[in-house]
């Protein structure tokens, strides 16, 4: 719990200045889609695409799609750093995806302290992060679905999905996620979203992925409401 701060920090004497967050542009949340693999075109023979539609058959953006190789295919090695920022008292992006062992940086872009935590028994962590600081003390070394909150601002809500594959992306406005595979073959294709009303918030298909294949998922039920990470509150609340 005190991992990073116990030994590496000294007293931080700080007069917390202002609580004046910039307005949240919901668009910002969507533009942050962390695509691990570059988008590809249909002309590319190793490009496969996944289309996600809602219950009314309209494209759904911002759904997480990942492909897990099932036939020992060669996958590219990569070491990425995922950034989860706390901005305007919200998690941005709302959903982050990382490959296990990727470095995850929490960056507090607000001018107040946050107390980030996960209450999940298998992936428990918590740390305070002060204004302007970056914290990378938490390591995520196995596949997991981690719901994060802030113990100071209860309305804050964010997710980190840790996957065991380099092939992950979020769908774009057309509901499409594209992957350039190193090797085609049999894959488990998974669509995930914390507000998807399905078993384990997922839809799964195991199939042979062929060149320029498009796999389409259509949700069986309407999505649940995505939590609004705002409080209309005044900036000078005496609470925590």
């Amino acid at each position: 719990m005190l991992k990073h701060s116990l030994f590496f920090r000294f007293f931080v004497i700080r007069f917390s200045l202002l609580r004046f967050g910039l307005p949240i542009f919901s668009a910002l949340i969507f533009t942050f889609a962390s695509t691990s693999v570059q988008a590809c075109t249909k002309e590319d023979p190793t490009c496969v695409q996944v289309q996600v539609n809602n219950v009314k058959n309209q494209p759904l953006a911002n759904m997480v799609v990942y492909l897990e190789p099932l036939a020992n295919q060669v996958v590219p090695q990569q070491n990425k750093t995922v950034e989860i920022s706390q901005h305007s008292k919200s998690f941005i992006p709302y959903i982050s995806v990382s490959q296990k062992s990727d470095k995850v940086n929490f960056v507090n872009k607000d001018d107040i302290t946050h107390h980030i935590y996960s209450a999940d028994s298998e992936n428990k962590f918590s740390f305070k992060i002060r204004s302007g600081e970056t914290d990378s003390s938490t390591h995520f070394d196995h596949a997991a679905e981690i719901a994060m909150g802030c113990n100071i601002h209860d309305w804050m809500s964010g997710y980190l999905l840790v996957v065991d594959t380099p092939y992950f992306a979020k769908t774009d406005e057309q509901g499409v996620a594209s992957f350039t595979l190193t090797e085609l073959g049999k894959y488990r294709v998974v669509v995930w979203h914390p507000q998807m009303r399905a078993e384990n918030n997922r839809m799964i298909v195991e199939k042979e992925l062929l060149s320029a294949e498009i796999t389409t998922f259509t949700l069986q039920k309407a999505m649940d409401d995505i939590p609004v990470q705002t409080s209309d509150d005044f900036d000078f609340i005496s609470d925590y």
Partner: peptide, 13 residues
């Protein structure tokens, strides 16, 4: 004891 990070806040009106 000293390295247990403490945050001091002074607010007012």
């Amino acid at each position: 004891q000293v390295v247990i990070a403490a945050e001091y806040n002074a607010h007012g009106i």
